[in-house]
Amino acid sequence: MNLSMVLFLIGILGFILNRKNIILMLISIEIMLLAVTLLIILSSFSFDDILGQTYGIYVIAIAGAESAIGLGILVAYYRLRGSIAIKS
């Protein structure tokens, strides 16, 4: 569980303290979702409970869908602007 909390923290820090580009925000969202899925699956492994693995599979699917939609919006944004840098 410590591992997943540390990974979630890395994801949040990457999301907030980001001055480079917007791709990094999307990557941080993926890391956050990965950390949470790891927590769910490890908890289900220790409880011998099948619900956790089912939950984990759904979260993986949703994370994939979210990244697809996010990248679609980013591409639509990029087509009009031409750059994805964050102006400081």
Partner: peptide
């Protein structure tokens, strides 16, 4: 290794390197 790669993801300058560390 995963934590180290995570830190390197968010501190890399080039986004392609970020994706590789992801």
């Amino acid at each position: 290794g995963s934590v180290l790669s995570g830190i390197l993801v968010i501190t890399s300058r080039n986004p392609i390197i970020s994706v590789l560390f992801l």
